[in-house]
Design a binder for these strands. Sequence first.
DNA 1: TTGTAAGCGTTATCAC
DNA 2: GTGATAACGCTTACAA
Lengths: 346, 346
Amino acid sequence: MSRITIQDIALLAGVGKATVSRVLNGSGYVSETTRAKVEKVIRDHTYAPSAMARNLSKRASDTIGMIIPEAANPFFAEILKGVSGVVDGHNLTLLFCNTDNTMEKDVKSLHTMYRQHVRGLIYTPAVDYGSAEKLGAVREMLGKLRAPVVVLDRPLGDMDLDGVFSDNFSAAYAATQALINAGHARIGIVAGDLELSIGRERLNGFLEAMAARGLDVRTEDILKGRFDTSTSYRLTQQMLAAKSCPTAFFAANNLGAYGFLKAVFEKGLRIPEDMGFISFDRLGNLNDLGFRLSYADRDVIGMGVEAVRLLLAKIDDPDKKTEHMICPSKLTLLGSERAYVPANSA
Amino acid sequence: MSRITIQDIALLAGVGKATVSRVLNGSGYVSETTRAKVEKVIRDHTYAPSAMARNLSKRASDTIGMIIPEAANPFFAEILKGVSGVVDGHNLTLLFCNTDNTMEKDVKSLHTMYRQHVRGLIYTPAVDYGSAEKLGAVREMLGKLRAPVVVLDRPLGDMDLDGVFSDNFSAAYAATQALINAGHARIGIVAGDLELSIGRERLNGFLEAMAARGLDVRTEDILKGRFDTSTSYRLTQQMLAAKSCPTAFFAANNLGAYGFLKAVFEKGLRIPEDMGFISFDRLGNLNDLGFRLSYADRDVIGMGVEAVRLLLAKIDDPDKKTEHMICPSKLTLLGSERAYVPANSA
DNA sequence: TTGTAAGCGTTATCAC
DNA sequence: GTGATAACGCTTACAA
């Protein structure tokens, strides 16, 4: 006893399968009486047309692809929530791939999306391809897709694609400025992966904010992390072991900030009494727990939602000109930026 | 210029499409020379067969479905990571649905999975259907699927399905026991949603551990939360406002624990000096930040991995008898369980 | 208003 | 070894 098909429904209802199809799709003419008859049979058997067959026939799938680099990162988990909500609000289906930040899985995922004929793709590249050799492969797959692509969070070379990004530079700039305004003069940064443009943009925002106020940044005060917790932790430990160190830090992302704070707290230092601090992105639960950690953050779920919107609009109208949305970050100062050093007071 | 098909490849290689298909699938005989020829054409054009057509033809998709209730919950984000890794390690594809803990979306997701012909499904029910009317609909959809289903984390009625669960009862029991051993006598619980069996099991573990030591539990010391942060926060605030309250609490899940801690810290109480504490599941970053919060936790990513394993095994051998994996929790005591009250010392 | 029939891009069963 | 050809379950002209 195999799966029930449109043919079965047609037989049961005593009509042709074209008619059933018309009822299913609300297309073409069909009399009220036959429509009712067919609908009853469909309901009685909880029949649902095979997406495989339907898509093949229509030469267009009802699937949206999503490729993200770190499924377990709270940032991407929220993005996923946003994307998923809109996608199935439109009776589309979501194909999910996690690339663990590796180029191989990234390219492989793109192949998967191609095989599956996704109708559109939301894509956060695992790495910054720059002009890397592999960029060719990515460009080719993306081209073959023949489906709209929205790049999310991390830009992809020079391709003319829709995108949703953050104002990394200005958020970092504003955060740094806040630290300076609070009275800090020697400030460090827990930088993220500088191979990624978002990492470089945040570093640049920091550097320029410092330069704008005539403040020097020592090389050793730039902790070159990788957007993860453990690297930042290690680097921070080393930094704290040095004879002297900054009186405040800007952490360029959530995970990196956790590593930094761990090392700081382990050392017995307090924030902000011993160390000023602002992070990029809100440190989820910490601020719920009575910490007063300042941060610059963006509407993450909203970024996901916006990405799908852009995608659906492009699917709707393939000639729509490409858009780049830059989600603004908002600086929230809760006190952790304060300076207690005997410096030029505010 | 449309998408390149097996037909095109056949023409280009000067062979029939059956031959190309054989090369593609490594099935049947095909001479070394033609194989080489065909493979070259395939490579030159980075051809990949259409999953839609292939699945339709084989009457079996290469898609695994996954339905989870809270995409943004770190617990499920990790599960997803585990599942996703194994799934695409097997060249399968992952169809993702988030149900936001609502029954409607849950049932709707099941329909989606059916339409998409998923080869197998990993399913965390949004609600405890119990004997609810809707259980019929779920049972029916699951039956129609004709694909193996692995239930994850939350059991589903009496259906004979593979499952991966946690030892909720004994983890709660052990955690409570630890609190008692540390010298606490009046202990409360931040319970989760008692409509969910995992919520009830954890509460029961707590209650029995108390009973086993002859300790009473006052009704008002059972905070009936909903596994979320805000409800627990509110309930804890109310509780702390009362004339007297427990000297220690067991929090039945991660989100609920955050709400509890927030209220406790806001009140200016310290852990463990003023309040003993153990949670179910590790409070991610907190313990990385110098907190010493005791917890009972499980290998979450491992649960996801195990679920796919079970699923693939069943897909491989549909007659395999159903298995229920119970992932053991490990109790880790870091000091937050200690009692400072002038009670019967350990 | 409805049914017939020709695809959609594969796989699989045949003959050759 | 290989190539026609009939499915697979649907949609969509085109007839009727």
